[in-house]
Simulated assay, not measured.
Amino acid sequence: MKKRYILLLCLSTLFIWRQAKGNEPYKTDANIFGHVLDKNTKEHLPYVTVQLKGTTLGTTTDATGHYFLKNLPTGNFTLEVKMIGYKTITKEVKIIANTTQEIDFEMEEESIPLNAVVVSANRNETNRMLAPSLVSVVDIKMLEATNSKSLAQALNFQPGLRVEDNCQNCGFSQVRINGLEGAYSQILIDSRPIYGALTGVYGLEQIPSNMIDRIEVIRGGGSALFGSSAIGGVINVITKEPSRNSGDIVHMFSSINGKAAENNTMFNASILTENRKAGIMLYGQNRDRQGYDHDGDSFTEMPMLKNRSFGFRSFLKTGLYSKLSIEYHNMHEFRRGGDSLKQQPFQSKITEQLEHYINGGGINYVQNSADMKNKFNLYASAQHT
């Protein structure tokens, strides 16, 4: 059953890619180009999101801060420019067939990102300043600055919650929100509660940081919106979506007092079709950490840990106001603590050993009305552990 589920997701992604390659963009020859600058330094800003607000049409600036939108539908639209750490800018624009326009932007830095969009407050995209509940956000800049390898390390820098290591032998991490144990906090992937309550206990180190675009945290009960486990709070992991053709691979080596070595390798790759109607983002991680014995009593203070994860997220823009997305992730974790780690568990004095295999994913379809007053959302998600 598990293999059939994985095969179905892969075939669906290939179908999406084929459909996107075959679909021709609007033949209007209506184009918009320009550049985006920092208002203070006048430097060009790379990888800024530029899109027609309310539609699925958009792009990002290149490494030199320039963008180009071609074959756009005609009519009156709002051109929106946004980037983490900067205030969002909008301009009204009238798109005319067989006409090319130049529209430039100057963005101003924002010390407190109140204009950021969050989805965890009421399950819809909402301006953070207008959200009915307080939402704390950990963005990708914070993940990179803190060199976080997993969700557990990223949450260490959030106020109002605590990530703690429990059990000296197996050394699992759990998150406490409002003092409640991990089982009382709901962890979501792209706003979907496909992880069980024990994810807050055992799953924090299974979610790699390179699949995360941002993390939204709500402190306080949210069971009415997110399920019975959201008593202490909600942690919503928003995964990355492909925005440009890119790829990177990173390897990190570290050790604890020169005794326990840790090797961590991560990769990301994004591919988009030329008309930007479809894209796919692949990610993976392999983490290997040796057990650490601090006081030389032959029992580990930190367990041996082996993590492996792989997944993808793809999309197909089925229309001007509709989009279909598919997400899949495969994770494996093995951890063992105690003594005699190289022997079988029954040959040791004290051993705790855990091993998890997780296959999960989902399909999501979104349809907006032309006036952006109505939205239809249909999704299905599943997980096998």
Rank of each mutant, 00 (worst) to 15 (best):
G227N: 12
G227A: 10
G227M: 08
S228V: 11
S228K: 06
S228Q: 14
S228P: 08
S229H: 11
S229Q: 14
S229F: 07
S229G: 08
S229P: 08
I231Y: 05
I231E: 08
I231K: 07
I231A: 13
I231V: 15
G232Q: 07
G232L: 07
G233L: 05
G233V: 04
V234N: 05
V234W: 05
V234G: 06
V234A: 03
V234F: 05
V234Y: 05
I235E: 11
I235L: 09
I235K: 08
N236E: 09
I238E: 10
I238L: 13
I238V: 13
I238Q: 09
T239H: 06
T239L: 06
T239Y: 01
K240Q: 15
K240W: 03
E241H: 02
E241I: 07
E241R: 07
E241F: 00
E241W: 00
P242C: 04
P242Y: 03
S243M: 12
R244M: 11
R244N: 13
S246W: 04
S246P: 00
G247I: 00
D248I: 00
D248A: 07
D248Y: 07
I249R: 01
V250T: 14
V250F: 05
V250G: 10
H251Y: 12
H251T: 12
H251E: 08
M252R: 14
S254T: 14
S255G: 11
S255E: 12
I256V: 13
I256E: 12
I256C: 00
I256M: 04
N257K: 10
N257Q: 13
G258I: 08
G258R: 03
A260R: 02
A260Y: 04
A261W: 09
A261S: 13
E262F: 00
E262Q: 14
E262T: 15
E262N: 14
E262K: 15
E262R: 14
N263G: 14
N263D: 15
N264H: 15
N264G: 05
N264P: 10
N264M: 01
N264L: 09
N264S: 13
T265D: 10
T265F: 13
M266S: 13
F267Q: 04
F267G: 14
N268L: 07
N268W: 03
N268F: 05
A269V: 03
A269D: 04
S270Q: 12
S270R: 01
S270W: 01
I271D: 10
I271S: 08
I271Q: 11
I271V: 12
L272I: 01
L272D: 00
L272W: 00
T273M: 02
T273H: 07
E274A: 12
N275W: 01
N275V: 05
N275P: 12
R276W: 01
R276P: 01
R276F: 03
K277N: 15
K277V: 00
K277H: 12
A278H: 03
A278M: 03
G279R: 02
G279S: 03
I280Y: 03
I280F: 03
M281N: 13
M281T: 06
M281E: 14
M281R: 04
L282G: 05
Y283E: 09
Y283V: 00
Y283S: 11
G284H: 02
G284S: 03
Q285F: 01
Q285V: 02
Q285L: 05
Q285H: 04
